[in-house]
Amino acid sequence: METKRQWFFRGIRNGIPIALGYFAVSFALGIAAKRAGLNALQATLCSALCNASAGEYAGFTVISAQGSYIELLLITLIVNARYLLMSASLSQKVSPDCSLRHRLALAFCITDEIFGASVTVPERLNPFYSYGLAVISLGAWSLGTCLGVVTGSILPTALVEALGAGLYGMFLAIIIPPARENRLLGGLVLLSMALSFLFSRLPLTRELSEGTRIILLTLLLSLGAALLFPIKENEQHAA
């Protein structure tokens, strides 16, 4: 049985690819922060306290437009609301004996990629695995944001966009292995991609923000999968 230390360093080791992707992408976030009038320290604190690129971009946009605190609060809440669903899902992966403080810490550390890496652990999730993922990847995220403010503005736009594309490739690398082993999961992934494309084109849903569309799709697909393909209690414990 692995110790907490072993779980932690296992998370650090597996989080290195995430960290590399975050470090590259956060340069663009640092540029956005600089354009919004934030200095390196302020931008770094934003990345350290808000572990969500879409939420930070939205927040920097509101700051650039000199919006109110209420606007900043609402847009951040809407864009980041999907992490509430991820937190609820991940709470089922840890042991029932896991304390509240660890559950809250896990919820704070969640990003799309950390969630993806944590939920694919075959056995029960030890919180220290996610902590290891978070230390290496979120540290790189904050550092990249800081350097983006300081030096990112001198990089060619095409280079920044190319670095940003690497994060999506990394996320595909996380979800493809379990999708290949589970046909149902693979089908849901493909269905989610198709519906996401349709929602971005249909008259009613294309007017919604990207974060709102993600929430809506997550609820619809999760509810549909739970009703049509429920996981029995013994299967859940075996996973």
Rank of each mutant, 00 (worst) to 15 (best):
A65H: 11
V79R: 00
V119D: 06
V62D: 00
V79W: 01
S130F: 02
A105P: 06
A117Y: 03
A107Y: 08
C46M: 15
L49G: 08
V135E: 05
T76W: 10
L100N: 12
V149F: 09
I114K: 05
Q92K: 15
T120C: 08
A107M: 09
L74T: 15
P127S: 08
S130W: 02
N51W: 13
S99A: 14
Y129C: 00
A58G: 14
L125C: 05
L72N: 04
T120P: 00
A52D: 07
R101W: 14
L125A: 04
G67L: 08
D112S: 10
S153A: 11
A52H: 02
Y129K: 00
P127Q: 10
G132V: 03
R82Y: 01
V149D: 09
G132T: 04
S153D: 12
H102M: 11
R103H: 06
L147A: 09
S53P: 04
Y69K: 11
K93P: 05
S87N: 07
L138A: 10
S137R: 03
C109I: 13
S95V: 10
H102L: 08
A88F: 12
V121R: 02
S47D: 13
E71P: 02
M86K: 03
S153Y: 11
V119R: 07
L100V: 15
S64Y: 05
G152V: 06
R82I: 00
F115K: 04
L138Q: 15
A134N: 15
M86H: 02
I114H: 02
F60E: 01
T61K: 09
I136M: 05
L49D: 06
Y69H: 10
T145D: 06
L84Y: 10
P122M: 07
S64I: 02
V119C: 10
A54K: 03
I75T: 14
Y131M: 14
L143F: 12
L100A: 12
E56A: 08
A65P: 04
G116N: 03
I75G: 03
F60N: 00
T145H: 04
K93N: 10
G139Y: 06
Y129E: 01
E56P: 05
L74D: 06
G144V: 01
K93M: 12
E56H: 09
R101E: 12
G132C: 03
S153E: 12
V79H: 01
F108R: 08
V135W: 07
L155I: 10
G144K: 00
L77H: 05
L143Y: 01
F115G: 02
T61S: 15
P156R: 03
I70M: 13
T76D: 09
N51C: 10
S99Q: 14
F60Y: 15
L74W: 13
A117C: 09
L74N: 07
S89P: 02
T120D: 08
I75L: 11
S153R: 09
T111Y: 07
L104G: 06
A81H: 04
K93E: 12
H102C: 07
G139K: 05
L73S: 11
T157L: 13
N51P: 06
G116L: 02
L138D: 13
S95Q: 11
S53F: 07
P156E: 05
A58Q: 04
Q92E: 14
W141N: 13
G59L: 04
L77Q: 06
T120L: 08
W141S: 14
S47A: 15
A105T: 13
G116K: 03
K93H: 13
S118W: 04
A52C: 09
V135S: 06
